[in-house]
Structures are given as C-alpha cells and as structure tokens.
Design a protein around this nucleic acid. Structure first.
Length: 182
DNA sequence: CGGATTTGACCAGCGC
DNA sequence: GCGCTGGTCAAATCCG
C-alpha cells in the first residue's frame, strides 16, 4: 500500500527512522493491513476522518460514535512548555482485541494523564515515552461497547532504539488479535 | 528513596 | 463571547 509508505516517509521527515522499531511498526501494520484495521490519522484541514472512515466502511460493527475518539485531529499547539514541535504529527491508530489495556510494545511509557471521553464510559489514558529526547505519545482507549476492543493511538516516531526485544512483541502479538469484523 | 501513577486543575481550540 | 471537550501539567500519592 502506498499509503503506508507515504506515512512512514512523512514520519521520517520529522524523526529519522530506524530499522529496529520500523520493523516493529511494519509488523503491526502488515498484520493489520490484512485485516484492514490499520488506521492512519493524517492531518486533514477540515476533516480528519477520511482515512478512518474509509477503513471503517468495511466495519459496520464498529460504532461510529467511537470514531471521534480516534479520529479527532488536533495539532498545532502553540506555546507548549516542553513540545518544541509545533509541526504536524502523524498519528496511527491500532484497534486491537485484548484483555489488557496496556499493550507492551517494547517501549517504556509514563502515564501523564487520563481523561473521560464523552461517548465512552471508559477513560482515555495518555502515555509518553520515557526518554530524554523522545516525546512520542500514545493514547490508549477501550470502547465502551466492546470491552475487548482497545484502541491505541501512536503519535510520532521513536528516535531511539527499542528497549525490549521484538521477540517479546511477537509474544504480545500472539496474545492479542487485531480486531477483525467478520 | 526514586520513579511511576493518580487526579484535579488549567488551558487552548472549536462550535454554537 | 461562552461553554464544551480534549490534551497537558503538576502536586500528591503509591509502590517497588
């Protein structure tokens, strides 16, 4: 898919990619592509749902009331204390089916916030990569309807190597399954 | 004791 | 202009 190529390239312009964690993302994306559940949240001027909706058209079982949670696109935050990157940051959303909220992808995350979303009774958790020069963020949210569905949204690319082995991630992948509407 | 979480407050963007 | 909602901060707390 050219979309994913373009996605990684656009990301590389912000943070230089490294093969180690790129392979991890490729693993997730390639796995999700076969199920059509890899959602790219690209920045759209007026509507950020384009790619998401196109993906969700195949999934009537996914409630549209939840797409706001993962489709909300807001960047360009001026006057941020720590974030010097006012540029656009691509976000990637994974919908997975798992019993655990925290999917250990091999990186160390520090929770820095938790917010309740309007259309969800489950709160959304905000994590940040615990690295000095790496402010990659991710949000973890589970759908109120399907307790088993967990949406993980990554924002940015890691500028360092992975801490854990990808074998561990494969183990995690074997534990979870990308949500597949049948 | 150090680092990660928790949790309420604060702020900014957007819609009405 | 105001209120709602999402995102972040930071002090307090927890836990190893």
């Amino acid at each position: 898919m050219d979309n994913y190529q373009a996605m990684f390239e656009s990301s590389s312009s912000i943070n230089p990619p490294q093969n180690s964690h790129l392979s991890l993302l490729n693993m997730m994306s390639s796995h999700a592509q076969s199920h059509g559940q890899f959602l790219q949240l690209d920045q759209k001027p007026s509507n950020g749902y384009m790619g998401l909706i196109s993906s969700m058209e195949n999934n009537p079982s996914l409630g549209m009331e939840n797409n706001q949670a993962i489709g909300n696109e807001n960047d360009a935050k001026p006057s941020k204390k720590k974030g010097e990157k006012k540029s656009k940051k691509p976000r990637y959303a994974f919908q997975t089916r798992s019993q655990v909220d925290i999917l250990d992808d091999g990186y160390r995350w520090r929770k820095y916030g938790q917010k309740a979303v309007k259309n969800n009774k489950f709160p959304r958790s905000y994590y940040r990569c615990t690295h000095q020069n790496c402010d990659v963020k991710k949000q973890v949210q589970r759908l109120s309807r399907d307790e088993g569905v967990v949406v993980t949204t990554y924002e940015g690319m890691h500028s360092h190597s992975i801490e854990k082995s990808t074998d561990n991630f494969e183990h995690i992948l074997s534990q979870m399954q990308i949500y597949t509407p049948i």
